[in-house]
Nucleic acid binder design. Structure first.
Length: 779
DNA sequence: TCGTGAAACTTTTTT
DNA sequence: AGTTTCACGA
């Protein structure tokens, strides 16, 4: 009898087996909700305790969020210090920073995001004079990205090019690579491809890293692409201690190059692999599991698993059919209100959809009922113009060759350097074969640049030089200096439009983001901060403590769970998306299966209640189109789902609503359809917003979240929970004010505050010198 | 050079 | 429907 080991405690048999396994390759096939994260974290902790120093363990995830979560849980188990826990992309960035010079990547290189890549690709196409053909920028990006994932070089691409189009792509590819190199930049693909390449070509490096990392743990292995596969393989060559966890049924990134064969053929790649299946589900009701397993069994390319639970069958899934997308939104919002009155916390709801465009209608309905919600779009913050502008300054300071960033800031805020001048500078730079910044430094002798303009360029350069003195100092101070010295802050303060206050608040938030980063990473520098900023993903924004209904795409939902899930827009053409239905050869089976996996992922996010809905009509890109139920709806087993048609019953008398504040422009949603089923566009005028009510064909009963069986943790209330519109506050320098509105969110509660005699301004409460006044101000 | 408004195009998913 | 690009006038 072995003594109880706390690390193995509370695990079921296969979980224990996976945690206890030590030497040699291990494949954990983990169904949804089967305690996979638990297994990985325990295993990592156990290895650090029994097998190797923490620094010899490398754990790789797909999102920063997952990495942070894993680190937190491993730390809670008493291990983790010194362990490498990161995403594939951040691992790539780290390796490149440390060893990239061997393949021509200088330290301090910039990471080009989608927008930068697009611009660069445009330039590359111009340079290769490939414009005007059938080849579009997007097609070039796609083709070259695919080539990079396969580790094909421009030269290699050219050799195998079979037609005119491919020869064009080869030329663009070459020009694009040359640009990246000249600008010392790497795109997202490079972060995987270059390390894979380095590890393949440089025996010393590979040997060294193989000795350093004795144990490899890779999560979401079903989503690895070829480059990631090679990194994993080349890092585990010596010890063969690779533990891959994943689920072929949840592979949803095929369009990004993920190769399902990586997990399906793992046992072939690593002989003597121990395979463990985690099939017991701790998340969902029996009905939800039955529905999910039935649906996914229609796929051919998979490894069969039996999902089962010891829990109860729960309620059947509800399949709702609506007349229109807006009915769908309204009904869901109404349902959330009803359930929340019954005690279900807002944070317990999630609304999921296939494409982002669907979220708008839902948002409107939630907003109309003042239901707090949050859209999971982590990149949103970093994609704001003001943030990109500020970050661009930082990027130029880090990497003066970063042309994308330089072009962004050269006239932001406006300093009289126009398009013509920039064009001349770019040509001069190309002729002299030097970087854009070098040309700008000698602008006075660039032909065609006027004296006055040269002077402006001079002072821009001086600004950058002055700022670079602060690069070594604290990051938040650096960001502050950028905002101040560039005039960007003043520019925002003086701007008159209504968004400028928000933008100012966002920019200030970037200062605190920088401060927080430095707190978390004591030896974090500008380079690391920029990498963090570039590699933040959508999923990283999920915050279960926000007290809000969460809206997200199905892709962003992976790995999450919610007591109540609404799957909206489950319509043919949307899920499965039409791109999988109308390929060059009709239905593309492989991508149809991926769509089905996406549906499967959605189904298995739900713990207790699951609502699936579709509408007969939906406005897509401004146009009302007829829709029909997804084929996947028909694949649900009758024993687990109830289908209901929900109709709009009554409109309140239009006239009584005329004086209400929310008369709306009729967006053709209610315009009559002609005989072809097409709706005439834009034939409205102001009409009252109809009050919609729904008939329930069945009485709704909601479970209460207090119910211990749901396992829902009591929601953490923010420290501003008792603040509301009208709350009196004091600002350290502006004095007494009153809250106009407040948007709760953990860590960054926004509020608009009005001060006597001044306008209202938006603050992030956590970071502003604002305190609550206990008593209303004595007038 | 810069701001305005019209036209054109876009999107499926995202590190 | 929203964003980006383009053309034009100040």
């Amino acid at each position: 009898m072995v003594h109880a080991d706390p690390i193995l405690e509370g695990l079921n048999e296969p979980q224990r087996e996976a945690v206890a396994h030590q030497e040699g390759p291990l494949l954990v096939l983990a169904g949804p909700g089967s305690g996979k994260t638990r297994v990985i974290t325990r295993r990592a902790a156990r290895l650090a305790r029994d097998a190797a120093p923490a620094s010899a363990i490398l754990a790789i995830t797909f999102t920063n969020k997952a990495a942070d979560e894993m680190r937190r849980r491993i730390t809670a188990l008493g291990a983790g210090a010194g362990m490498w826990i990161c995403t594939f992309h951040s691992l790539g960035a780290r390796l490149l920073r440390a060893y990239g010079q061997r393949i021509g990547v200088e330290p301090g290189f910039s990471i080009y995001d989608e927008a930068d890549r697009k611009q660069t690709m445009k330039s590359a196409m111009e340079e290769a004079s490939v414009g005007g053909h059938v080849l579009t920028v997007d097609k070039a990006i796609h083709a070259i990205s695919a080539a990079k994932n396969e580790l094909r070089t421009p030269a290699g691409y050219e050799v195998t090019a079979r037609d005119f189009n491919e020869r064009m792509i080869a030329r663009v590819y070459e020009a694009y690579e040359a640009l990246l190199k000249k600008q010392n930049a790497a795109d997202f693909d490079d972060l995987l491809l270059k390390p894979a390449q380095m590890l393949g070509e440089d025996d010393d490096l590979r040997r060294m890293l193989n000795q350093r990392f004795q144990y490899l743990l890779i999560d979401e292995y079903q989503d690895t692409n070829h480059a990631q596969y090679l990194v994993a393989r080349r890092l585990s060559e010596l010890n063969q201690n690779i533990c891959a966890t994943g689920d072929p049924d949840q592979s949803i990134y095929g369009w990004r190059g993920a190769n399902l064969d990586n997990i399906l053929d793992f046992e072939r790649d690593y002989p003597d692999t121990r395979v463990v299946r985690l099939e017991q589900n701790y998340r969902s009701t029996g009905a939800i599991l039955r529905a999910a397993s039935t649906v996914i069994r229609a796929n051919r390319r998979r490894k069969d698993k039996e999902l089962w639970t010891e829990g109860d069958d729960g309620e059947p899934l509800r399949v709702w059919r609506f007349a229109s997308g807006s009915d769908e939104s309204e009904h869901i919002a109404q349902n959330i209100v009803a359930m929340s009155q019954d005690g279900v916390d807002y944070a317990d709801f999630a609304i999921m959809y296939r494409v982002n465009a669907v979220s708008r209608g839902v948002e409107d309905a939630l907003r109309a009922r003042r239901i707090p919600y949050r859209i999971i779009r982590g990149v949103e913050f970093y994609n704001r113009r003001e943030i990109r502008d500020t970050v661009a300054y930082l990027r130029v300071l880090m990497n003066p060759r970063d042309e994308q960033a330089l072009l962004r800031i050269i006239n932001t805020p406006a300093r009289g350097i126009g398009k013509k001048t920039i064009e001349r500078l770019l040509i001069a730079a190309q002729n002299a074969d030097e970087t854009l910044l070098a040309t700008i430094r000698r602008a006075h002798d660039v032909p065609g640049v006027a004296k006055g303009t040269a002077k402006k360029l001079r002072s821009f350069v001086t600004l950058l030089d002055r700022l670079s003195d602060h690069v070594e100092g604290p990051l938040d101070a650096l960001v502050g200096q950028v905002l101040e010295q560039s005039g960007y802050e003043q520019y925002l303060r003086e701007a008159e439009d209504d968004s400028s206050e928000d933008r100012l608040a966002n920019v200030m938030e970037l200062v605190t983001v920088a401060a927080r980063y430095q707190q978390e990473e004591p030896d974090g520098d500008l380079d690391g901060f920029l990498a963090r900023v570039s590699l933040t993903s959508d999923q990283d924004a999920v915050d279960p403590n926000a007290g809000c209904v969460q809206l997200m795409t199905l892709h962003a939902a992976k790995g999450l769970e919610f007591p109540v899930v609404f799957l909206v827009g489950v319509e043919q053409g949307l899920l499965p998306h039409e791109r999988s239905l109308s390929g060059p050869f009709g239905v593309d089976e492989a991508s149809l299966e991926e769509e089905r996996r996406l549906f499967f992922v959605g189904l298995t996010r739900a713990m207790r209640r699951l609502h699936i809905s579709y509408a007969d009509m939906r406005a897509i890109r401004g146009r009302l189109t007829p829709r029909s139920a997804s084929q996947f709806v028909g694949e649900l087993p009758d024993s687990a789902a109830v289908v209901e048609t929900i109709s709009r019953a009554t409109f309140r008398d239009a006239r009584s609503r005329y004086n209400d504040q929310d008369a709306v422009w009729d967006e053709a949603e209610f315009a009559p359809a002609d005989e072809a089923g097409q709706t005439s566009r834009r034939r409205g005028g102001f009409r009252p917003r109809p009050e919609r009510r729904f008939e329930f064909q069945q009485t709704e009963t909601y479970f209460s979240v207090d119910d211990p069986t749901t396992g829902a943790a009591p929601t953490e209330r923010g420290r501003y929970a008792d603040w509301s519109a009208g709350t009196w506050v004091r600002h350290d320098s502006l004095g007494v004010g009153q809250v106009i509105w407040i948007q709760p969110s953990s860590g960054q509660t926004r509020a608009a505050i009005k001060f006597a005699g001044q306008g209202q301004r938006v603050y992030i409460l956590e970071h502003a010198p604002i305190h609550r006044l206990e008593r209303p101000s004595p007038q």
